[in-house]
Nucleic acid binder design. Structure first.
Lengths: 112, 112
DNA sequence: CTGTATCCTAGCGGATACTG
DNA sequence: CAGTATCCGCTAGGATACAG
């Protein structure tokens, strides 16, 4: 009898649901790419800017801030350097994203 | 040595990555709610419109179309009735979304 | 080097009236 | 009942110049 997903259906409930925040965050364009990079090593700002081809500095900044607000990454600012690192919480999210990626690979509905 | 996530870093690669499509789809506002409802039983259009409080008919239509394009749901149109049903592929996605929801519940960074 | 400020476009999401 | 048409605001995303 219990619903498959414990999910609300009214709008206010929707906005208060814990899942929606993270879901809409990972749905943003560069979130997964950033997490993937930071999973291997810390990065500086320009380092990320150069490594990720196609992102603008503005969006890069904002996406990093969002990730920081959700405690997925941490930022340590020193003169001439900002170091972005994946947090433990961020690390626990990786397997879920990997699983989603694998699912997508299996079910990739290629539309021409 | 292999990267944690097999993810590209250029923009063209980004757009061709199978994961991005599904990620950006589930990141949309009503996707998860729809999947959750259809997981339990088929629904008609107005039935969904009435059950989900806060969605507009336009967005409801578009979200359903997106889900249909990704083969997560199927639509059977008969006179006076459109029946939306979760596909097998859609059903395999549920555990992943549930896992994400649980992750969010555990790490819900409530920012006031 | 690490951002912010400014300006722009496109698409999401919404409200509502109308059509088959 | 099941949508579409039309309108609108907001925000994601981008380009680029400037600032600390």
């Amino acid at each position: 009898m219990s619903p498959v997903l414990p999910l609300p259906v009214t709008e206010s409930d929707h906005d208060n649901c814990a899942a929606t925040g993270i879901l809409r965050l990972v749905g943003q364009k560069w979130t997964v790419v950033l997490l993937a990079l930071l999973a291997e090593q810390p990065y500086g700002f320009n380092e990320l800017d150069r490594t990720i081809h196609g992102v603008s500095r503005r969006i890069l900044t904002r996406t990093l801030r969002h990730l920081e607000q959700e405690n997925l990454i941490s930022r340590v600012r020193t003169p001439q350097r900002a170091e972005y690192t994946l947090t433990d919480a961020g690390r626990t999210l990786l397997p879920l994203i990997i699983a989603l990626g694998e699912w997508a690979a299996d079910h990739h509905t290629r539309r021409p």
